[in-house]
Design a protein around this nucleic acid. Sequence first.
DNA 1: CTGAAAGCGCTTACAG
DNA 2: CTGAAAGCGCTTACAG
Lengths: 342, 342
Amino acid sequence: MSRSGSGKARGTGRTTLEQVAAQAGVSIMTASRALSQPQLVSEATRIKVEQAVAELGYVPNRAARALASAQSHVIVVLVPSLSNLVFTAVLDGIQDAVGPGRYQLLIGNTHYSDAQEEKLLSIYLQSNPDGILLSSLAHSPQVAQMLAASKVPVVSMMDLADNTDVLSVGFSQLDAGMAMTRYLIDKGYRRIGFIGAQLDERTLRRADGYRQAMQAAGLADQRLEVMVPDSSTIALGAELMGRMLDSVPDVDAVFCCNDDLAHGAIFHCQRQGIRIPEQIAISGFNDLPASAWMMPSLTTIDTPRYQVGYEAASLLLQLIAGKEPERRRIDLGFTLREREST
Amino acid sequence: MSRSGSGKARGTGRTTLEQVAAQAGVSIMTASRALSQPQLVSEATRIKVEQAVAELGYVPNRAARALASAQSHVIVVLVPSLSNLVFTAVLDGIQDAVGPGRYQLLIGNTHYSDAQEEKLLSIYLQSNPDGILLSSLAHSPQVAQMLAASKVPVVSMMDLADNTDVLSVGFSQLDAGMAMTRYLIDKGYRRIGFIGAQLDERTLRRADGYRQAMQAAGLADQRLEVMVPDSSTIALGAELMGRMLDSVPDVDAVFCCNDDLAHGAIFHCQRQGIRIPEQIAISGFNDLPASAWMMPSLTTIDTPRYQVGYEAASLLLQLIAGKEPERRRIDLGFTLREREST
DNA sequence: CTGAAAGCGCTTACAG
DNA sequence: CTGAAAGCGCTTACAG
């Protein structure tokens, strides 16, 4: 009754539960139960309410529900990039694990920026999320402080944490970088270069792996590393490959820290008439769709990115449900795909 | 005071505006104003409130604000795919136009499914969004009905509407399909094939453009069309190219409805030893980053996807602000990039 | 420039 | 199986 008067309207003007209840001839809270816990209500009541909902075109007000129940059913997901197919696969995994309807995903793109991460988090925290999924282990002090103060469960994706204070799902970027480098060494390559961009923590860990493997084999040489903070693109891969060939003419293999750069490196060599792998071998990281199909096909590390998203979301859902997860650090491994380019 | 008693707690346990106001020694609504309309408050008051906010680590409760103000500050964005770089560029444009903080983007991936679109919309409508951005013009009757009933402003992206009942920002998929086909005809190709996948409305419009141009030139031949509903991938492009070569051995050019398929088609030809463009020309659509760099580089249509997102979001913001936009149909055009593959 | 009251639309205990 | 009351944490008019 209250809203049907001629007083000033404040709400959205939409159909409310109150109107549904009136139409169905039940109390407002019976109507509420019929919708959210139908097993607690008689079938006759449930049907009456459902009819009223259909007739009135009732759409629940999520803000009111969130406020009353102190539960947002929101999960925040922060990724460093959406133009990188790696993270869209992670999102697919998350979406599939969470399922439709129950939770709302709030997806933020940090563009690899700490400042952006902080900004997004401060905004998303206003939604009182039930859980948070992050794509990195390292955070600015501000972000760490906000996360701690919020007391919201957090799971980190992609790399693995050193300890189990932080929940993490992924694989060892260090080991993967080492594995690719050892593979090239075992193949007989000696002057193995490393091309890295963006220089985010995952790239740096892969570079660490490269370095450790080169040192163990007595092949380390600072000049073999070409690293720049720019975003990884095909164009940059081509440019850095050119720079590598100029500065280290005797380089016989190049490990690119991701497939985009490797594709650019291959295209550059093709334009220069340099044969792959006869004159120079090239490898990548991530196994993007093009890598298996291009000519020559690209040797790379196949990373379980969809699985990472899926398992991280599953772990988070356990935490949200108040269960103590059996594993707080889930290593999903990686697979080296040997192809024509090495 | 109310919450500090020993009664059963119902809320989230977080700091509230009430606590901030108490700490600052002002009323709850003065505190509210100090945060959202600081110009209406004395500087001394503003500073006191800001200090209290900092000391208590206050984070506003968005659900409460949305409920009280009947404004969600949410914009819903529905895209058909995130693994397609076209739509991540659209999202970037939207994000830049909307700016940080003011609006929250609710991003949904329909995976090219009407059922998913309906499901997502029904859930997102519960958040009472201020506006909706859609990636298509055609919708199921259920979706059309939900949109109409919600009375939320909607802008459609990518293709252009036939009339101005619907607000749309994009370019003519038909014209673009026609332009590429005419270009190939003008180049002297006669047996021009068309490879299409997904068969979403944009692909079908491009195919229409191809067909009209071929008919106008007296070159139409049903057998030149290879179209399947599967998702566009490089692998599928390679497969469909093989099918095309088998069924139409005298084909001299192939217009692929997007770059992913074109890349696959090129890789397939390279593995078969077929020279491009000498034996067969190949063109794509969208101008993905790899297209300019691969060997041979790909002739394609450069589409203004970032701009589409930016302009569509700008238009939506005007509608939300209650302004009558000067243009309800914004044509951003397209550019044909001639490269080595044709 | 500041405040007391009412209200947004739901859910949560508590009764019956 | 059903209901009356209180409350979630804010903002909106309305006064002063």
